[in-house]
Amino acid sequence: MTAFRNLIYDFEEFGLIIRDLLSGIKTIRDSWDETLTEMYLIGSKALPLVLLGGLFSGVILAIETGHQLKIFGATSLISRTVSLGMVRELGPVVTGLLLAARTGAKNSSEIGAMKLSDQIDALTAFGFNPVHKLVLPRTVAALIMFLPLTLIADITGIFGGMLIAYQTFQIELAWFWDTAVNALKMKDLFVGFAKPFFFGFFISTISCYFGLRTKGGTTGLGKNTINAVVYSSIVILILDFIFTKIVWEVL
């Protein structure tokens, strides 16, 4: 019963942060410098990680599906499988999970350390809303940066798949690229490009929420950072399931 009550309390607290976030959208102009810094930190610092994540996802996808399709003599479908798989599923999910680990841990530990050293109290005491000052710039930065990063993961994934298809299954590079691009329909692009916005929003708000509720010294900080990454990752997987279900059954 206590666990259930705590869960309700957690949801209520998270809801209040979302409310503060939405009510403070107009104040983003005051925190534009912080937003640009966060965009730089999310974008440039996570780029190598996303490049590698995207590349290897495409490579593995091409190897696994290629060998299965070869049994049926349908290796020509690798390009289609890789491009649809990357744009609709693996690109957004792999980017989301990598950024949940990187950006989520960063947000939670930074804000958590500020909480433990009274910096959050200082903001409140001097008349600032910590959600406007800390959560809003991080969330806006995530909303702006997650889409280009996902696009980069998609492209490198298709590129990796193309190299494997050429090297292992002797498929022409130009033909692979053409069929991969042509296989994508508006619906696929919509799904692939909508997911990063939701993933970015929830990774940022969940990790900041765990940072803001940090207590219990360094042990508490570590625990909340782990929770931020775990919960963000779980939410990404759940959201991905919901999206996939909606796309196949509604759209």
Partner: peptide, 13 residues
């Protein structure tokens, strides 16, 4: 609130 300043024990810089 702007008329009240505070100096924290931990300084909170």
């Amino acid at each position: 609130r702007k008329k009240i300043g505070i100096v924290f024990q931990s300084n909170a810089l």
